[in-house]
């Protein structure tokens, strides 16, 4: 019998306690200074804030790239494809394509580290949604340099537009 009352009491007390906790959170969300936790993000309307080191879609500088293949070798998933041509009457390579397959890329940033000329970095674009797999293949050599280097936002439109340009937008540092 004592246990019966104890069970009853503990049930009532702890249920009331739990309900009080949720009620307090309920009330706190109406505090104009605090608001709800999720109210800090207005993602589709405003871009989601990302940290300075955010590892988003790459930034790539075609003008300095020497096509040394270091990033492609470092990539654990082999998602970087570099097209290069020998420069006539000169040394080094001319980059004819620098494609990253974002259906494979896992944003580990291992490609950034070995680059001898610091031409590839992780950017802050986090959304590159597209309707076909074609959109996941981004050829940075055919993107406008501003977009590729992150001064303008990397966006699906630019990626789509880059597919129709036949020539790379710049020939690399040896041009």
């Amino acid at each position: 019998m004592r246990e019966w009352f104890r069970n009853l009491w503990s049930a009532i007390a702890t249920v009331a306690q739990g309900m009080f906790v949720t009620l307090r959170v309920f009330g706190k969300t109406y505090d104009q200074n605090r608001r709800t936790f999720t109210e800090h993000f207005e993602y589709p309307e405003l871009p989601a804030p990302v940290a300075a080191r955010y590892r988003g879609f790459h930034r790539y500088d075609l003008t300095t790239c020497i096509a040394c293949d270091q990033c492609a070798k470092a990539c654990p998933v082999d998602c970087i494809y570099i097209g290069k041509e020998r420069v006539e009457n000169g040394k080094g390579f001319r980059v004819s394509g620098f494609t990253i397959d974002y259906s494979k890329c896992m944003f580990c940033a291992l490609c950034v580290e070995p680059c001898p000329v610091d031409c590839i970095f992780m950017g802050s674009t986090l959304d590159l949604s597209c309707y076909s797999r074609d959109g996941t293949m981004v050829d940075f050599a055919r993107l406008p340099v501003d977009v590729a280097w992150g001064r303008a936002t990397l966006n699906p439109t630019a990626v789509a537009a880059s597919k129709v340009i036949v020539e790379p937008v710049h020939g690399g540092p040896n041009q």
Binding site: T22, V25, F26, K28, T29, T36, F37, T38, E39
Partner: peptide, 10 residues
Amino acid sequence: KVSARIQDRL
């Protein structure tokens, strides 16, 4: 709405 507020959402 109630569940959202209880869970600190909107």
